[in-house]
Nucleic acid binder design. Structure first.
Lengths: 194, 194, 194, 194
DNA sequence: AATGAATGAGACTTCATTCAT
DNA sequence: AATGAATGAAGTCTCATTCAT
């Protein structure tokens, strides 16, 4: 009853060879983020991630201690990447004026931020709102964001700007999308006036 | 309207009386919100809600078509209640000056908004970010919020203020909580200057 | 992807009707004991019990909170039945003399006790040796055994006789089986001499 | 035989030195017994034993053909050690009288036998009750026990005494522990009267 | 109108074992 | 000789949903 039958299954699919795959953890994390974008943390499962990453189910708990560890690794990577992008934009800006323009593009969903990123952000926030472990991730993220903004603005302004960016990004996605560029630009200008 | 009914069951049979319970749907919705606050949408299940509402499991699919319908009903109720609270605060304010003070209290987590509300908000946003049906809920909520703010401010300002409120509320919960009152007040003042 | 396919499986087996089956818990317990006899607690699994009881796998955790609860229920039933059998034998004995003869038959594996019973006993002991919850089951069992023996013997003798019965039953199964009747009878007689 | 070897690995590479560890099999067996005492055969797994023995998981199937082989090796070692202890006690006894006293101490849980030993004994019995391979281990154990007792008693008495010892040891652990010394001494005396 | 019983699907996880190195 | 990586099978359990009553 025990070990029979396994070989009878797939004449079509060749026996999958035992793969040596040093980047597997990375691929799993990326697949995890993909699944979250598509179905939310609520819809996340080992099975779906394994399928998306094209790894056997057993790989999931081999590489990550459990669903939580996977989630944490995925969101840590996401948060790091997101703040790196903001920091790069701020580093490219040669003046507060250029920084303001970059923020505006950022908020209006230009090159820097897209829906995928906002979706992941809302999921991370939902976790962080109830769980200190994820709150640590958002803390670190926000600290890095402020540091990026402080390349051009004083700390108090950076803090307020960061909150405004957050709020505007959410509204762009969750409101009817009519957030007009002119008003956004004006708000940024008002809050960051020298 | 008579108060008879429940007590009429025979004392002989130990049969649990079929409860006549007209508020049951309401109770289930509130229990659903409680469960979400405690465990997130990810941790929501019919069983947990039924236990929290003290109703039989069979009641769940009797009163709501399915998990999704329950979730939708719960978040609709939540969003309506949240915007009613903001509207009441704006209605109480006799001047833009008082309105600004009320917003400040709102953001700093005074009487108007508490962690519970922010938790539910993040969960709703996470749903809305991926699902048009929930996006309709946030649309309506934001529209009502803008209308409330337009009691005292012009539409463009209302829109920006609403975004700022959002961002600040999130930062209060998800950052290290050091959002200082003075800066918040200044930001509100700057954005809503006449 | 979700609910498709289920009906394609068995053209051979008719769709199993939802059964109303009030004795199901009992049947599961008996099947559980059967599986333990065949494969030990170590080899016990929900799947095997469900198959043995001819119930769907989902029934297992519906009727019993978990593997432990099932195990406990099964051994409680077993211990109760075992002591009832000894008590019945002692009740049938009209004199200490007849009681001694009954014990001897008991130990030598006559009508009263068979291998199945010894197997279950050893499994229960293994659990009880490490777990207070199961120890409570053996306590109760031994108390009932002593009470049965006290129908014919004084308490101290009953206690010693019970221990001897245990040891002899084990030796009969686990030694080479050459435990000779004459010596058993002599031991019983010596320990229970008036 | 030189003491070199392990320390020869380069200080440059952080490679964990391949341990040369001739006692590893022994250590694994002892760890296996520890795990059984703590979690039962039911809770035994290669992973737990490897962790307890502080050896890599791959070592397990390298040193032992499988779970069964490991279990068998562990219980063989245990049974041998247990009977050696009884034999040593009987060898130390200079007369039947001293032998009786030693048995009494043995049963009452003195120096000779402790709970750990009874736990392992019950686990072994549970295996032996269903599996001839383990039954061979108990056969050999009991034969050695009888031989030890025959240093002072005739074969028939030795056999009965061994059964009584078994039963009393079990009762001490699995009953409420009130097995009184006086009765035990009397029972031993009665069964082994010259 | 309402519910307890029931069930199939699928969740996460642990596991013994294999194998390339 | 020894092991870290890997995997398929199977484990327990939770679940949304159905249905007879």
């Amino acid at each position: 009853m025990s070990a029979v039958g396994a070989s009878a299954v797939g004449a079509t699919s060749a026996v999958r060879p035992r793969r040596r795959d040093p980047m597997r953890s990375e691929r799993i994390i990326e697949a995890c983020l993909d699944v979250i974008v598509a179905e939310g943390v609520d819809g996340l499962s080992h099975r779906k991630v394994a399928a998306a990453a094209d790894v056997p189910l057993g790989s999931m708990t081999y590489h990550f201690a459990g669903r939580d560890a996977l989630l944490m690794a995925a969101f840590e990577k996401f948060a790091r990447r997101a703040s790196e992008r903001l920091d790069a934009a701020m580093a490219r800006a040669a003046s507060p004026e250029e920084a303001r323009a970059a923020i505006e593009r950022h908020v209006l969903g230009g090159v820097l931020i897209d829906d995928r990123e906002v979706v992941l952000m809302t999921e991370l926030y939902a976790l962080a709102a109830r769980d200190e472990r994820y709150k640590a991730v958002t803390h670190a993220w926000m600290a890095r964001s402020r540091a990026a903004l402080e390349r051009h603005f004083d700390p108090a302004t950076a803090r307020i700007l960061d909150a405004l960016i957050e709020g505007l990004a959410l509204h762009r996605l969750l409101d009817d999308g009519s957030g007009e560029g002119a008003d956004v630009a004006r708000a940024i200008a008002l809050l960051s006036a020298d």
